[in-house]
């Protein structure tokens, strides 16, 4: 239900990144969204289609990478996948004292910018 708020935050970040790189438009945004992030990829896509209107990402494609949940056991040290978002037990010993090491991400991984006229460098870099 809060996916529209998430998309607005995402678009504000994308606009800042575009401005910082002198780009006139955002072509593509890639997210990593874990099952424990509280965001639903399908709703994110629907909200993005609405929220992007009138921004520099109005024609941008949204790609959502859905990660899997991985836990590490505090008792036996085993690391592996969790059964479901509401069963985070250790896959080896079955204990409940585990730590989520993957699956709660809500990250912007990368954005692809359309270069403004006169810009000419290509390639990837970190902000």
């Amino acid at each position: 239900m809060h996916e529209l708020a998430l998309c607005r935050a995402l678009l504000a970040q994308a606009e800042r990144i575009a401005a910082a790189h002198g780009a006139h438009a955002v072509r593509r945004v890639e997210l990593r969204v874990g099952p424990l992030s509280g965001a639903v990829p399908e709703l994110l896509r629907a909200a993005f289609a609405v929220a992007r209107a009138g921004t520099c990402a109005q024609e941008a494609e949204l790609v959502v990478h859905e990660g899997a949940i991985e836990v590490e056991c505090e008792a036996c040290g085993a690391r592996g996948p969790a059964a479901t978002p509401n069963r985070l037990h250790c896959p080896a010993c079955g204990g409940w004292r585990t730590r989520v090491v993957a699956g709660d991400e809500l990250l912007i991984e990368r954005v692809e910018l359309a270069l403004a006229p006169r810009a000419r460098e290509g390639g990837a870099e970190h902000v």
Binding site: L6, A9, L10, A12, Q13, I17, H21, A23, R27, L31, A39, L106, L107, I108, E109, R110, V111, E112, L113, A114, L115, P117, R118, A119, R120, E121, G122, G123, A124, E125, H126, V127
Partner: peptide, 19 residues
């Protein structure tokens, strides 16, 4: 500059809720 395909990919790795 005149090519519609000119682009740059920026690695961000920042939380969506960073603000």
């Amino acid at each position: 500059a005149g090519t519609p395909g000119a682009s740059r990919t920026v690695e961000v790795l920042e939380g969506l809720l960073a603000a």
